[in-house]
Design a protein around this nucleic acid. Structure first.
Lengths: 322, 322
DNA sequence: CTGAAAGCGCTTACAG
DNA sequence: CTGAAAGCGCTTACAG
């Protein structure tokens, strides 16, 4: 079962490959309606699909958008992102190519061989990689400080503290995740919380790792117990999941939320809303951000200026827990 | 900044392109150590990476694995899958190419132009597509009944009912998800639950949609209230998330779990474990299944027999809620 | 041990 | 309006 090529289509419709190409690519060249019809019919009948490889070789660029995934689990963000990106790229005949960031091979080998239209990084690239891609005129998009996707970690932490302070809390705990892979994010959010405490004249937040496990969470939470040395009246958690672990830990000690300890999360997840009490949280607007990233990719493809950063990607959603 | 080609490497090291290719691809041909060295050094210095397009054109097959995503959100499964698949494929120099199932263009155009090593479908392909791919000798993997990834929905529902029946429940509710996109799965799980009830001589399960929203869940749950017509003593939920919504709904009515109503979920999520009470659940072993799918892809690549289906991908995890 | 040559399938100047 | 020809970058028989 050999591959059907444009030569086959040409033969079947009694024209040259040139004409086939003109017809199929809607070239500016005028082609007679009868020829057009015959070529299209032949292509359809034979099930012809042009070779992406040959096309890429000829044109010097593939129909691929390379997305370099980070080393950490991105859950909801990844989901929304892939959903939007694959779909919007599809609409333009492009394909999303995923690559795992942990690959030991140099990134340069990848984009040099694949020749993608755009390279999207969910994590910043090395300065050297950035330079090399710029030199090769490869469009690059990273979700760093300026992109809006993974942005504003510090502001998130600060927002949590400001809300807790505004509701009268002074001794604040920070519940960090157990997972080393998100340690970078956690550190940035904690830094934001810390800075806010300093700014507001509050004592340093009491930071603690709280695993997503009831027993371990209960052990961790002891430190914050009203009778303990690290007593706090409120906890800012890395995200809603960690906040739910905090809730479980406090429950194990018979502490009530928000009366004994207030809790504020991040992400505005459905399960945070279903908790008892429903979580007060900072929304990072995953949907908005995923859409924005997709829009950035599209703009980059079209050589247009990047779209304006969405307003207010981070905002507080007040519910019962704080 | 024109592309660096094997010709450049050949020129820089004073040999022919043939020799460059032999060295870089570790051909069976013996090449003198000095030549080898010179070629490798030149390749490194020039930042040479072979063109994937040219290679694919030459060999007739790309280094891509095409993954067709379904129309529904797959959350944890997608996460685990992409994580494992990108990583394991990376290790073999392959790349994961994502495609959105909702694309209106025929799937055939895609695999014909891309010429992937394997096509993985997270949802079954049409019979016509299957046939065409088979004819073109394209390796296909679907996660249907036989694959283990999305398998055994009915068994999952049945397992929930068997557990509830074993703990003395006779009137059982089924909490279906709100999301149309997973309606297929939900129907299969419910069918399994229904069959189990019939087999055990229990009345039909009382099926209800329970949204992931506290107020809506509370409304839905009224039907199951001990004083209502649809009264049940236990609920099997589509998954842990829905089970948490059921918990929230029951809580709103002052009903206690498991004393007034027992609840069993599916997925064994971290947040289900953190709930109050911790959820009894059916584990579908996402990790195991993702790994199995990756193993299937690898086996298909190597032309080996598919790996044995993992034992017991579905099992009950007993905790406090049922 | 190394090189000259063909050919994968496409598109696009260039000629008619 | 249509076609013959070149060339994108690679690998691999085939000759030396």
């Amino acid at each position: 079962m050999p591959r059907v090529t444009s030569a086959d289509v040409a033969r079947a419709s009694g024209v040259s490959r040139t004409t086939v190409s003109y017809v199929l690519n809607g070239a500016a060249k005028p082609i007679s309606a009868t020829t057009r019809e015959r070529v299209l019919a032949a292509a359809r009948d034979l099930g012809y699909a042009p070779s992406a490889a040959a096309r890429a070789l000829r044109s010097g660029r593939s129909d691929l958008v390379l997305c370099v995934l980070p080393d950490w689990p991105i859950g909801a963000v990844l989901d929304a992102l892939i959903e939007h990106l694959t779909e919007e790229l599809c609409a333009r005949g492009l394909l999303l190519l995923l690559h795992h960031g942990r690959d030991p091979r140099p990134l340069a080998d990848l984009w040099r061989s694949v020749q993608p239209r755009v390279v999207v990084g969910l994590t910043p690239f090395s300065a050297e990689d950035e330079r090399a891609m710029a030199r090769a005129e490869v469009q690059v998009l990273t979700t760093g400080e300026h992109s809006g996707l993974v942005a504003l970690q510090e502001r998130t932490g600060a927002l949590q503290v400001h809300h807790l302070a505004a509701t009268g809390h002074r001794r604040i705990g920070y519940a960090a995740p157990d997972d080393d892979r998100v340690a970078g994010f956690a550190a940035q959010r904690l830094a934001g919380a810390r800075a806010a405490c300093a700014e507001l004249g509050l004592p340093e937040p009491v930071a603690l790792e709280v695993p997503l496990d009831a027993a371990a969470a209960a052990r961790a939470v002891r430190t914050w117990h009203p009778d303990a040395a690290g007593a706090v009246s409120a906890v800012a958690a890395y995200n809603d999941d960690v906040a739910l672990a905090v809730l479980a830990g406090l429950r194990a000690h018979g502490l009530r939320v928000p009366d004994d300890v207030a809790v504020v999360g991040v992400d505005d997840t459905a399960l945070g809303r279903l908790a008892d009490p429903p979580l007060t949280t900072v929304s990072q607007s995953v949907e908005v951000q995923a859409h924005h990233l997709a829009a950035q990719v599209i703009a980059a493809l079209d050589g247009q200026a990047p779209p304006p950063r969405p307003e207010q990607v981070v905002h507080l959603v007040r519910r019962a827990s704080a």
